[in-house]
Design a protein around this nucleic acid. Structure first.
Lengths: 226, 226
DNA sequence: ATAAAATATAGCCATTTGGCTAGTGTTAAA
DNA sequence: TTTAACACTAGCCAAATGGCTATATTTTAT
C-alpha cells in the first residue's frame, strides 16, 4: 500500500546546531541516508522556528546548548505549535535532568553525539514511525521517572527535575552549602538556629539522593541548579 | 622545486575527538580536501599517543575536553616528544585560559568549531608550512598575553590557569573528593592510610586556597579541573 | 475545615573533618 | 652531592557533620 509514499518520499528534516563545522558535517552525514533529507539547517532555534511557519518537515533535530532560545525551550515551542513534528535531541549532554527535561518538553528522542551514524538513521526512521528513543547511556534515569505518558504529570518534570523538589528555603541553604559554608555559618547568614540549618541540609541531602554536602554541592553545580 | 613532494604528498593528519558521530563526520569533511589525509582518528589522546610511536604524521588535530588525558596535556606531550608534529586545537571552548594554555603547551593553531571547512583546510595548509593560527573570535585575548615567544614565561600559564599546581596524586584525590568520598573511602580506594588521605586533602585545600572540601569540590568542577 | 507541606527548634551520638606537628623513603633537579 | 619536592604515615584535638527522633508554628492545598 502506498508504495511510493512510504518508500520514496524522504523524511524531511530540519537541523539546528550552532557550530558551523559540526552542522555542515552532520548535514552531510545525514544526507548520505537515501531516505533522509535535510531540507535546511540552522544556527539558532529562532531561525528554525521562523522557517517552520512556512516549511513542512517531519523531524527537527536539535542541539541543546544553543545561543538565544535554547534547545529545550525550542522543543517545547515546536511540539506545542506543530504537534505532528517530531523533535530529536542530538547533544553531548549526559545530564540526567536534561534528558528528563527534553522528553517532558515533548522531544521524541534523545541522542548523544556518541551515536553511530547508522544508528542515527535508524532512530530517525523509528521516530518517523512514532517511536520514542533514548540513548542507552542515559536511558536508565529516564525510565525511572517516566511512568505516565499523560501530559499533565509531564509538565512538572522539568521543574521537578531541575529543582529536586527543593523548597525556597532549601535552595537558599543549598546555595550557601555550595559556597562551602558550615552549618553554623549558614545559620548566622539566614538567621536561624544551627539545628534548623542542619535539618535543612539533611533534607537537601535526602532530596538530592546524596549522603554528604560535597555531593550535594557538586550535584547542584553540575545540574546548573546553583 | 620538488613539485611532486609539495603538491602530491598529502598532509598526514591524526584526529582526536571523543564523540563518534562528530569524529566520523569531521574525518569525512577533512578527507574531502585533496591534499589532506586523515590517517587515523582516535577517541582518546592516549590512543593517539600510542599510535604516534609507530606512525609518522604531520599534524594532530585535537579536541579539548577529552576523557582521560585531556587535550592540553596531550598537546604538551606531543610537542615535547615529537617537536616536528604540529598540533591543531579544534574545540568549542572560547575560554581565554584554554587558548593561552593550549598555545603555551605548544599548539600551533586554535580553531573554534565555528570554523568553515574551507578555512580549516587553509589553516591546516598554513600550519603545515609552519604558521601559527588563532581563531579570530579568541585572538584578541591571546595577542594580549602572548608577547614573548620564549617558553619560560609561557609554561606557567597552564598551571596557573587550570592546575593550581596540584600533583598527580592530589588530582587523583581531588577527583574522589568531588565524588563525595570521605577520607577513609579515599584511603581505601587508592590504598593509602587515612592519614595520607587527610594530608593530601589538606594540601589540596591549601593549593586551591579554600578552607573545606566542599569549596574544593565546587572550585574543581567550576574550573573544569574535574 | 482538615490534612499536608514547609519552616523552625532541640538534643543525642558516632564519625568525620581540618589544622598541627613530626617523621620516613623516593625521586628529580641544582 | 645536596637540596627540594613528592608520597606516605602518625597522633592529637576542637569543631563540624549527618543520622535520628521529637515538637511546634505557619502556610498552603483540598
Amino acid at each position: 500500500m502506498k508504495k511510493e509514499n512510504e518508500q520514496q518520499r524522504k523524511i524531511r528534516v530540519f537541523f539546528v546546531e550552532d557550530y558551523l563545522l559540526i552542522r555542515k558535517s552532520l548535514v552531510h552525514i545525514l544526507n548520505k541516508a537515501p531516505d533522509i533529507e535535510v531540507i535546511k539547517d540552522f544556527v539558532s532555534a529562532e531561525q528554525c522556528l521562523k522557517e517552520l511557519e512556512t516549511t513542512q518537515v517531519d523531524i527537527v533535530i536539535m542541539d541543546l546548548g544553543l545561543p538565544g532560545i535554547n534547545g529545550l525551550e525550542a522543543t517545547q515551542k515546536i511540539t506545542k505549535l506543530y504537534p505532528e513534528i517530531k523533535v530529536i535531541i542530538l547533544t553531548s549532554h549526559e545530564n540526567e535532568n536534561e534528558v528528563l527535561a527534553a522528553m517532558s518538553m515533548g522531544a521524541k528522542a534523545y541522542c548523544l553525539k556518541e551515536i553511530e551514524s547508522e544508528t542515527l538513521y535508524t532512530v530517525i526512521r523509528q521516530i518517523q514511525k512514532g517511536a520514542l528513543w533514548i540513548h542507552p547511556q542515559v536511558a536508565d534515569f529516564a525510565s525511572k521517572t517516566m511512568p505516565k505518558p499523560n501530559s499533565t504529570n509531564f509538565d512538572n518534570l522539568y521543574t521537578q527535575a531541575k529543582d529536586f523538589d527543593l523548597t525556597e528555603r532549601e535552595k537558599e541553604v543549598l546555595k550557601l552549602v555550595v559556597e562551602g559554608k558550615s552549618n553554623t555559618e549558614i545559620a548566622e547568614e539566614i538567621v536561624i538556629s544551627t539545628h534548623t540549618a542542619k535539618a535543612h541540609v539533611g533534607n537537601i541531602l535526602a532530596k538530592l539522593s546524596v549522603t554528604d554536602r560535597v555531593q550535594a554541592a557538586v550535584k547542584a553545580v553540575r545540574s546548573g541548579l546553583i
